[in-house]
Amino acid sequence: MEVHQLFLPDVPETAIPSDMRDEGGSVLLTSATDGIVELRRNADGWWVSRRWTIGDPLPAGAFGMALYGEGDLVFVIVHSQGVFKLQGRSGTWVEWPHSGPMPLVVGMALQRGRGLWVGTGATIGAPNGGAAHFLPTQGEPFRIRIVDRQVQPGGSMLVKESESVWMATRSGVVQADTWGRLRLLSTLRVQTLFRNTKTGETAAVGASIQRWSESEGFVPVIFEVPFREPHEMGHPIDVVVDNQGRWTILYSGGKVVLLNAQRQFEALLDAEHGIEPTSRKLLHLPDTDEILIGTGNRGLSLLTRRAANLSGPLTQTGKPSASHPLPHHFR
């Protein structure tokens, strides 16, 4: 297992991984203040292939998620303003099909060959803004209004099936489809959804850690880690399941838990192993099975898990202290 920092002078330290293009291996990074960067990789390492900044051609604003579209398209969330569409060196706003105040755009997911799903939340200016919107490549756009703020999209979205999108919400995972239906798939708060593009394995983290079973729905992932005070760990904020079925779980306290393919504890990583305390985003690179880690203020790191079993100083042993119970999602 290796963790090393990527030294890329042309990449803002505030940039975090946002999306990965399977074909070609390019990666989109987003910085709230410094715009969007595209990275590529060759035998000599990583290099910046494209960069979009304010005025060239991005509008002034604070930037959220960036997402690859069809062909050369890139979609960017501009907070409190909408979705901006990049193509080459030019850009334009995605025409918003619904009248009224602009809601808060929190997430996007591409349904290849069909269109773009956009998740929005209510704001003071747009109190009825909670919805799942589908902007088709051809045909009329539509939206599914979501009045209950506990069920409104929270940011993370993924296209699981050809006609629907899954959304992370305070109430759990909610499925919306092109027929305008909503379905609650889990009942615990979810912050992040992940699906491995090669194996299809799907995971969710937030109030708990869950995996998707076609026969049982979302079921908890239960494991033990060596004793740490709960406040040192925080709560799970991101997850990756690699091509070999191994889990990497990022916690808000800047800790990373590694599970093997049987979802058993393997190692607990922190600053001593190269994990920055401010780490906040994981991005799986399916061609190499590596993971990019974004910190938000200290640049990027790359995590490589080369063997199924770790040895040496990274292997953690022992059982939790009986007098200090673990948080519920560890049991």
Rank of each mutant, 00 (worst) to 15 (best):
M157D: 01
G125W: 07
K198L: 15
P127K: 04
D148T: 04
Q152E: 13
A203N: 00
H133I: 13
A131I: 08
L188Q: 14
L158W: 00
F142L: 02
A176D: 08
A126Y: 02
Q87P: 06
P103F: 02
E201G: 06
V174E: 04
V159F: 04
V105N: 03
L110W: 15
A203K: 09
K160I: 05
T120E: 05
G180E: 07
P97F: 00
L184Y: 02
I124L: 15
V205W: 04
V173F: 01
N196L: 11
V147F: 03
R143F: 15
Q87C: 12
G121V: 10
G129L: 03
G100T: 08
T197L: 08
M157Y: 03
R145Q: 14
L193E: 00
R183I: 05
I144R: 13
T199F: 05
I124R: 15
S99E: 11
R112L: 11
V94A: 12
F134A: 07
K198A: 13
E163R: 12
S90E: 15
Q111D: 15
W166Y: 11
L110C: 11
A122M: 06
Q152K: 09
A132I: 13
A204M: 00
R145A: 14
A131P: 09
N196M: 10
L116W: 03
E140M: 05
Q175Y: 03
G154L: 00
H133T: 08
G121R: 15
V159T: 11
T137I: 01
P136W: 00
I209S: 03
P153Y: 02
W166C: 11
S164E: 13
A207T: 07
N128V: 07
A109H: 13
P97E: 01
T137G: 01
S186H: 06
Q175S: 11
H133D: 05
S171T: 07
V165E: 08
I144H: 07
L104R: 15
R181H: 13
Q175C: 08
A122K: 13
R195I: 09
L116Q: 05
F194M: 04
G206C: 06
R149Q: 06
G115I: 00
R149Y: 02
A122R: 14
S208Y: 08
V94Q: 12
A168H: 03
E163D: 14
T199Q: 03
P97G: 00
S171Q: 11
W96F: 03
E163K: 10
E95K: 10
D177R: 12
V118A: 09
E140S: 10
E95S: 09
F194Y: 08
R170S: 09
R143V: 09
W179Y: 12
S162A: 15
W96G: 03
T178M: 14
G113Q: 00
V174Y: 00
E161F: 12
